[in-house]
Write a protein that binds this DNA or RNA. Structure first.
Lengths: 243, 243
DNA sequence: CAGTGGTCTAGACCACTTA
DNA sequence: AAGTGGTCTAGACCACTGA
């Protein structure tokens, strides 16, 4: 069993359990902990680091939740197979573009505040005829058009146009003290309209991945509705699930 | 603040924390706890039920993780907005089919054990030339063809053909003592080939949602590789995310 | 049998929100 | 200032696995 070289810093603002899980994440990412390797058990790790077992345990639960390790009562904790991760990641074209150092860029097609349609105000949980900011952006990766992003937000929390360009939508909201607590989303597919195809440099009838998302803040308020379309030839969604 | 009528059963096999989170799930689903409603705080709930705070806390963390509630330090726990859930669910055609009572059915197109291709054995983490079971099925909902499901499994854990038909793939594996601990998956889109279109009752060039999944057991062994295509006109993936 | 994770207790102190 | 969730401790008993 590998003993990871973990140094816990009790003066840090980072919770102890997160320091432990971060150290394991790094060790798995770097290959120091290989797939199938046993992870040190909770009791020993707690004793070695001078922490309580529940604290170490919480770190392990984080890792299980991320799909990085699996646990079995009586048997122990093992690093999850990496083929599972690598296999799928290898063919992600967008990741390839990013790995080549071609950063994604964005151009704003529309930025307008107007009275929201009945559908929009209902989706956003606003009273009828409330003001709504609509943003349409074209996202590029490696010089190639990749996606058309449409967002609708309540006008009273609308970020500045300049802030949007500088730091992205979610970062702009965070600067205004609004943090996203969660979202519900739906992934689907359809073929491109003529207008979409033209913007994206595809032929009409090309397959598109669609993402519809409604995000809410920790106070339970609906903060944003996004309707995005991605070129299926360049983009896919990767995710790990557990249980 | 609503006091939920929860009865904890200490003799039950269901963990106490799960009994608490289940009760809240039910109350939210039934509308007894409405979106925006305050949820009873941890301390009071623990005292009222005669449980410790960490036990109650674990139940709340479950709910946060499922996206059903949001929490803020100093402020409390509130039920997440239901528009977020309902809005998206309303237009899910497959859910509509299911809600109409038309159960999904499945017909098996192929069920064969053979020496695996190099790609397949590598994906499954098997030695070269190991035996691999390939299953291809056509899934219907409401009498309509919905998806083509292709699965590859190591031959030594292959379920019986009869077990597969009776209870589905994952249930068959569970009966053999194999539980799925997690998976990595990728969702993409492409257009249907002629053969796929014919099976699915679509025109060639119709958009398809694709799902590629590699699943592993709690012992860290790769158990299954699935490559599925869904008619985008009838199917989408819904998910809730947090943080 | 020893080892391991799963569950649970009864507290403690702190950071943040709201009034 | 009072209320709330976030973090942490130092134990306990149990269920399951594997040699």
């Amino acid at each position: 069993m590998a003993e990871l070289d973990i140094v816990v810093d009790r003066t840090s603002e980072i919770p102890l359990h997160q320091q432990i899980s971060d150290a394991h994440r790094a060790a798995i990412a770097s290959g120091q902990l290989r797939p199938g390797a046993r992870v040190e058990n909770e009791i020993d790790l707690a004793a070695r680091l001078g922490l309580s077992r529940p604290t170490v345990r919480r770190a392990m639960e984080d890792l299980v939740h991320s799909g990085l390790v699996t646990r079995r009562r009586g048997s122990g904790t093992v690093v999850a197979p990496s083929q599972v991760r690598r296999q799928l990641r290898l063919t992600s074209l967008f990741d390839d573009l990013e790995a080549e150092g071609r950063r994604p860029t964005t151009s704003v097609l529309e930025f307008s505040i107007a009275v929201g349609s009945p559908e929009t105000t209902e989706t956003l949980g606003l009273p009828p005829k409330a003001g709504v900011l609509t943003i349409r952006r074209l996202r590029f990766a490696g010089g190639e058009p990749l996606a058309i992003l449409t967002n609708e937000l309540p006008a009273d929390i609308a970020p500045d146009y300049s802030a949007l360009g500088a730091s992205g939508l979610y970062a702009s909201l965070r600067d205004k003290g609004i943090t996203i607590a969660g979202a519900t989303q739906r992934i689907g597919a359809r073929v491109a309209t003529h207008a979409e195809a033209q913007l994206l440099g595809e032929k009409a009838g090309a397959p598109l991945l669609t993402l519809d998302r409604v995000a809410y803040s920790d106070s339970g308020r609906i903060v944003e509705h996004g309707s995005h379309v991605y070129r299926a030839s360049l983009y896919s969604f990767d995710m790990s699930i557990r249980q």
